[in-house]
Design a binder for these strands. Structure first.
Lengths: 165, 165
DNA sequence: CCCGATTAGTTGTTGTTACAACTAACGGTA
DNA sequence: TACCGTTAGTTGTAACAACAACTAATCGGG
């Protein structure tokens, strides 16, 4: 309890700025998406993940993992998106416990029309204020944090692009 | 709508990692604080801000600004913390519309006993995976993002340490 | 082939947050 | 000093997330 390593002034300053960004950024992303597409950032993220999946389909468990959601949370969100016609639930043939979530054509259209505004917001608030070397630094630093925060690489798609890994 | 500047591969990779950290970090901070102190990160942040303020006291509006909370949100949170004995509301003498939130002795004690575990969590997950130059890079990059996200510098304490600024 | 243990997912409850409506007090102006 | 616009804060409602309890299906022995 007494042998705590407090933060140095430099560390404290960087941490305070970082925590500020972590607090503020979700609100920035949410409000643009809410305003322009009536979607929360999490809902958009779910749709986007499905749109990149083979056959626009993912198991609920896999989708939950890919979006860092608990299964109950995902289940509720998918229900809402299903009511709005963007997703459909399809029973899984191989494992009858499982449910597949599949992006409908309307869901694909929604992603296609929503993506530009979202990317623009990301650019304005995150990417464009940075130089090319800043981007490289950001990538390296976030990769190091993910090594601790997300050891199972649920998120960090280091090998995700390789089909045979 | 058609002239969207999509993200380059490097930008996309950095963005994906960054967004993963932004999604995961709050959960990491929250669960440690919840487990060890029955406090959300936001509640801890409110207490910590008060503990650094002169006379452990801040106007509701000032506290809301310092913690990036809306006034209604802060009002509810302060009510909860008041019920638990960590904060007291004190009428403001100069402006009778205003309410001062003041950290009680129990609140100070709570911060003192909670801080070490919180700092340790921050170290383990954010600071210690980084080198000294990473810290400098992080500080610079987050500063640039805050320039856009938080133009009024509610958060970014560039001059906050100087009493006469 | 049947039983316990595990896995996949859904549903209900409770707490927290956002948003809107409201009250109270200040400040300037006629 | 009486009024109007603005500022400070609280309270009520509605949406979303966390957690727990539940159902249903699979797996792994005996």
């Amino acid at each position: 309890m007494t042998d705590v390593r407090w933060l140095s002034p430099d560390e404290l300053q960087a941490w305070k700025k970082f925590v500020a960004v972590v607090e503020l950024l979700p609100g920035v992303l949410d409000s643009q998406l809410q305003r322009d597409a009536e979607l929360s950032h999490f809902e958009y993220f779910v749709l986007a993940m499905l749109s990149e999946a083979p056959d626009r389909t993912l198991r609920m468990t896999g989708l939950a993992s890919a979006t860092n959601a608990t299964l109950p949370r995902l289940s509720h969100v998918v229900s809402r998106l299903e009511k709005r016609g963007f997703i459909e639930r399809v029973a899984c043939a191989e494992d009858r416990r499982a449910t597949n979530a599949r992006l409908t054509d309307a869901g694909v259209a929604k992603v296609v029309e929503t993506a530009p505004g979202h990317v623009t917001t990301v650019r304005e608030n995150v990417i464009d204020p940075l130089s090319d070397s800043d981007i490289a630094d950001l990538d390296r630093i976030m990769g190091r944090m993910l090594g601790t925060i997300d050891p199972e690489r649920r998120f960090n798609p280091a090998v995700m692009a390789e089909p045979g890994a």
